[in-house]
Design a protein around this nucleic acid. Structure first.
Lengths: 198, 198
DNA sequence: TACTTAATTAGTACCAGATACTAAAAATAG
DNA sequence: CTATTTTTAGTATCTGGTACTAATTAAGTA
C-alpha cells in the first residue's frame, strides 16, 4: 500500500490565499507559508501571479483609505457634496450611492442616507452658530439604487429668529425620489445651549 | 558683524513635528529630517520623547481602524446595537454617540444619526424580504450629546399587508429626546421590485 | 573664561518583511 | 522515460526603522 500525500492544487491554494487575505489582510508571507505548509517563495510566487501586493502596501492603502475617509468626514459637515449654496436661501448637494449605503439584497439605499443628505443640507443652509433639526416630515417617493446620483435641493420657505422651515426635494435624473419639510432651530449663543443641556 | 543662525528651539520643532504628522502621517523620518533641516537621529529622538511610533506602526493602526470600521459597517445592518427584537412587534436599540457623530463646536449629535438609529430599527422590525421607509414624521425634543447612550424603542402600531406603521421613541436616561412615526413599505417579492425600478 | 550640561549628529550592528534573481529539486503530465 | 510545471533554496539588496555608543556642537552658568 502506497500512501500518496497529494498536495492540494495550485489553483485551490491560490483561491484559499485570496479568501484568507480577505479575512485577514494583516498576515505576512511567512505566516501564510506556515498556514499552507509551503515555502515562503511559493507564497510569493502566488502573490505575484495574483497581483496581490505585499503586506506593507496592503496596510498602506487601507490606512490611506481610512485617512481620507476620516478626513472627509471631518471636512464634510454635509453628507453629499455641496454644489451650490446661498446661505439662508437655497442649496444643492449631490450624493452618489455607494455599496455601503445599500441593502445587500435589493441594492436599494437605506432611507437614512437619503434623509442624512437632506438633513445635512438643510442644516448647512442656516447661517448661524448653531443649527439643529427640530422637526421633519418626510416622504420617500421611490427607492434609490446603488450608483445613482442623488441631487437634493433645499430652499428656505419661512424664517423667524428662532426657527427656519426648509423644503428639500431630492431627485435622480429629474425624477422626484424624496421630499421633506424640515424645521431647524437656530441660535448664535453657544452658552445658552450649554445651560439648557441640564 | 556676526550672523548668528539661531536654530529653532527644540520645543518649537517638536510642536511642528506633531502638527506635521497630523497633517500627513505617512511621512518617513528621512523626509522629516529634510523638512526640519536636522539629522535623522534628531527626528528619532524627538519621536521618542513625544512617544510617536514609527511610520509602519502608524500605518498599521490606521489600517486596522479602517478595517474594523468597514467590517462593523458591514456587519451592522442597523445603526446602534439591537438589544431586543420581537419581529413585527417591538424592538430596542442602543447607540452611544461618538466623536464622528457630533458637531465640532457644540458636541451635539447630528440629527440624522438619531434618525438613522430609529429608521434602522423600524426597518429591522419588519419580518419581510423587503422593508423600505416610505414616510416619516419626526421630532427632535432635545439635543443629544457626545458619549450619551441613546436608547430607541420601536413598536408596530398598525399593519396592513403592504405597509406598517411604527412608532419610535428615543430616550437618554429615560428622558424623551426624539419621537417619530414611520410608515414602512413591506414586500416579499424581490422580482416585482426590480421591475418597478424601471 | 573655563566648566558643565543639553542638544545634536555620526556611525555601527541588527531587525522585519519584503523584491529580484538564479539554480536546483520535486512533482506531474504526456 | 522525458519534458514541463511547480516548488524550494539561497543569495544579494532594499526600506524604514530600533538600539546603542561616541563624538561634536551649542548654550548656560559660576
Amino acid at each position: 500500500m502506497v500512501i500518496v500525500i497529494t498536495r492540494i492544487s495550485k489553483k485551490k491554494r491560490q483561491n484559499d490565499l485570496i479568501s484568507t487575505l480577505e479575512g485577514n489582510p494583516f498576515i505576512t508571507d511567512e505566516d501564510l507559508a506556515k498556514k499552507f505548509k509551503v515555502s515562503i517563495q511559493t507564497i510569493r510566487l502566488d502573490r505575484m501571479e495574483l497581483g496581490i501586493p505585499e503586506l506593507r502596501e496592503r496596510m498602506k492603502t487601507m490606512a490611506e483609505k481610512n485617512y481620507d475617509h476620516v478626513r472627509s468626514l471631518h471636512l464634510k459637515e454635509v453628507i453629499g457634496e455641496v454644489i451650490e449654496l446661498q446661505l439662508d436661501q437655497y442649496g444643492i448637494s449631490l450624493l452618489e450611492i455607494t455599496e455601503d449605503q445599500v441593502f445587500e439584497k435589493t441594492k436599494i439605499a437605506r432611507g437614512h442616507f437619503i434623509f442624512a443628505q437632506a438633513n445635512s443640507l438643510a442644516v448647512a443652509l442656516i447661517n448661524e452658530e448653531i443649527a439643529l433639526t427640530a422637526k421633519a416630515d418626510i416622504k420617500f417617493i421611490r427607492p434609490t439604487y446603488l450608483s445613482e446620483r442623488v441631487i437634493a435641493k433645499a430652499k428656505v420657505v419661512n424664517s423667524s429668529n428662532e426657527y427656519s422651515d426648509i423644503e428639500v426635494n431630492t431627485y435622480v435624473d429629474n425624477e422626484l425620489v424624496f421630499k421633506g419639510m424640515f424645521t431647524v432651530y437656530r441660535s448664535n449663543e453657544l452658552t445658552q445651549m450649554k445651560e439648557e443641556r441640564k
